[in-house]
C-alpha cells in the first residue's frame, strides 16, 4: 500500500515507513536513546530528500522523548533550572543551525554536509562506545571492580565565572559551559534532525560532573523544547516538515519503544552498549561509502534559482 507524502512529494510504501519507525522505536526503547540519529539516515537511504528527512526527524524526536521526560518529571529526577539554562543555549543554537541549514541548501552543499556530520559523529561515538563496552566486558570477565572516579573532582570547567546554584542537582556551576553545551546540541538538532542525547548525556556526566540521576531527565527536557522549536522553524523557513511521514513514524515509534524497553531490561548493560555501538558504526559506514563511491549521475537538478 502506497501513501503520498505531500511535502517530500513522493509516494512511499506505508509498511516500510511503519517498519522503520517501529524498528527505530524498538531500539530507542531498548537502549534509552531518542533514535533521531537512526531515523534520519534511514529516511535518506530510502530516498527521502535529506531536507525533509532532517526536519521530519526533529519532529519525530519530540514524540519519542516526551514519555521519558514525563516519567522523570514524576520521579523528580528532572532539574528544571538546569534544563532551562541548557534550553536557552539550545534555542539559540537551533536558530543559528537553521540559518546554516538554509544557507547550505542554497549553495547546494546541504546533502554532503549532513552526510559528513553523520559520518564523523556516528564514527567517533560508535568507536568510543565499542571500546568502552569491550573494556567493561573484559573487566566483568576478570571480576575486577570498576575503577572509582571521584565525581567531585574539579576541572577547568569549574573555574569559569557566572556561577549558579542548581539545588536539585546539588551543584554550583558556571552557566557558560551549560549554555555552550545547549548551543552545540541545538545546532546539531537543526542540521542533523537528532535530539542530541547521545552527546549531551556523556558531556553532562564527564565534563560538567552533573549527578547521573538527573542527567537523563534534564537532557530530555531540553530535547523536547529544542526539537519542537526546530520543527516550527524548519516548517516556517524551509517548508520541510512532512506531517504525514512524521505521524506514521511517531505512531510506529512509540509502540516499538514499549517492546524495546522490555527487551532492554533483560539484557546486560555492556552487551547492550556493544550492540548499539556496532549499529551506530554500521550506519556511519554505510553513509561514508555513499560519499566515496562514484554516483550514478554526477549531475543533479534542483528547482529554483537557489545558487544565487
Amino acid at each position: 500500500m502506497t501513501v503520498y507524502l505531500p511535502i517530500a512529494e513522493l509516494s512511499v510504501n506505508i509498511f516500510i515507513i511503519l517498519g522503520m519507525g517501529a524498528a527505530v522505536g524498538f531500539l530507542s526503547g531498548m537502549f534509552g536513546v531518542g533514535g533521531g540519529f537512526l531515523i534520519t539516515p534511514l529516511l535518506i537511504f530510502y530516498n527521502i530528500p535529506p531536507v525533509v528527512a532532517v526536519a521530519t526527524g526533529a519532529n519525530q524526536v519530540v514524540a519519542s522523548s516526551i514519555s521519558g521526560a514525563i516519567t522523570h518529571f514524576r520521579r523528580g529526577t528532572l532539574d528544571m533550572k538546569l534544563g532551562t539554562v541548557l534550553l536557552v543555549g539550545g534555542l539559540l543554537g537551533a536558530t543559528v543551525g537553521v540559518w546554516i541549514f538554509s544557507w547550505l541548501r542554497r549553495v547546494g552543499q546541504l546533502d554532503l554536509f549532513i552526510s559528513l556530520l553523520y559520518v564523523v559523529l556516528l564514527g567517533a561515538i560508535g568507536t568510543l562506545m565499542l571500546m568502552e563496552s569491550l573494556r567493561a566486558m573484559r573487566r566483568a570477565k576478570q571480576n575486577q571492580p570498576l575503577p572509582l572516579k571521584r565525581p567531585g573532582q574539579h576541572n577547568w570547567v569549574h573555574r569559569l565565572p557566572l556561577k549558579m546554584r542548581f539545588k536539585k542537582s546539588r551543584i554550583y556551576l558556571s552557566a557558560i559551559p551549560i549554555v555552550v553545551l545547549g548551543f552545540v546540541i541545538g545546532v546539531l538538532t537543526s542540521i542533523m534532525g537528532v535530539g542530541g542525547g547521545f552527546i549531551m548525556v556523556p558531556a553532562m556526566i564527564y565534563l560538567l560532573r552533573i549527578p547521573t540521576n538527573v542527567v537523563v531527565g534534564t537532557s530530555l527536557f531540553q530535547i523536547i523544547f529544542v526539537t519542537a522549536y526546530t520543527t516550527m522553524v524548519q516548517a516556517a523557513t524551509n517548508y520541510a516538515v512532512d506531517i504525514v511521514l512524521a505521524t506514521i513514524l511517531m505512531i510506529a515509534g512509540v509502540i516499538g519503544a514499549q517492546y524495546g524497553v522490555r527487551v532492554g531490561q533483560k539484557l546486560r548493560g555492556e552487551q547492550l552498549r556493544a550492540l548499539l555501538a556496532l549499529l551506530v558504526l554500521a550506519v556511519g559506514i554505510r553513509l561514508a561509502i555513499a560519499l566515496v563511491v562514484k554516483p550514478q549521475d554526477v549531475y543533479s537538478i534542483a528547482v529554483g534559482g537557489l545558487s544565487y
Partner: peptide
Amino acid sequence: AAHNRPIVYGMFCVLIAVVTGWGAS
C-alpha cells in the same frame, strides 16, 4: 497549509507529536 500558514502548520506537527508521545505513555 505548509506553504501559506507555516507557523500554524509547524505548531500542529508539534501538537501531534506531543499527543502521540503523551498518549503512548
